[in-house]
């Protein structure tokens, strides 16, 4: 565990989380959410939880992003609020 690397990745995670809830374009938000998942995966792998990092990389960054995009294609792309 290197705490400087932890801090950098954690700051990027917070930035991605804030961006994902503030972006108006839902397709962009889901892509940023995939980036967030991958950074979480990096953080967990760096902290030694390789199994959790593997699950996050396959489910969070891989399949759930595809499912979000499939759902957005069937509904509307612009958020109303």
């Amino acid at each position: 565990m290197i705490w400087q690397l932890d801090l950098i990745i954690l700051a990027l995670v917070v930035i991605c989380a804030l961006a994902a809830i503030n972006v108006r374009d839902l397709l962009g938000a889901s892509v940023i959410f995939g980036v967030y998942s991958f950074l979480m995966c990096l953080l967990w792998a760096e902290m030694g939880a390789v199994d959790v990092a593997f699950t996050e990389a396959t489910v969070g960054a891989g399949v759930s992003t595809i499912l979000f995009i499939a759902a957005i294609f069937r509904t509307t792309r612009r958020s109303k609020d």
Partner: peptide, 21 residues
């Protein structure tokens, strides 16, 4: 080793999802 039934199943499923995509 790291991994297991759930992660391997998701990988196998994502191969089919890629094909369908």
């Amino acid at each position: 080793s790291p991994g297991g039934g759930f992660q391997g199943g998701v990988l196998l499923g994502s191969a089919f999802i890629l094909l369908a995509l």
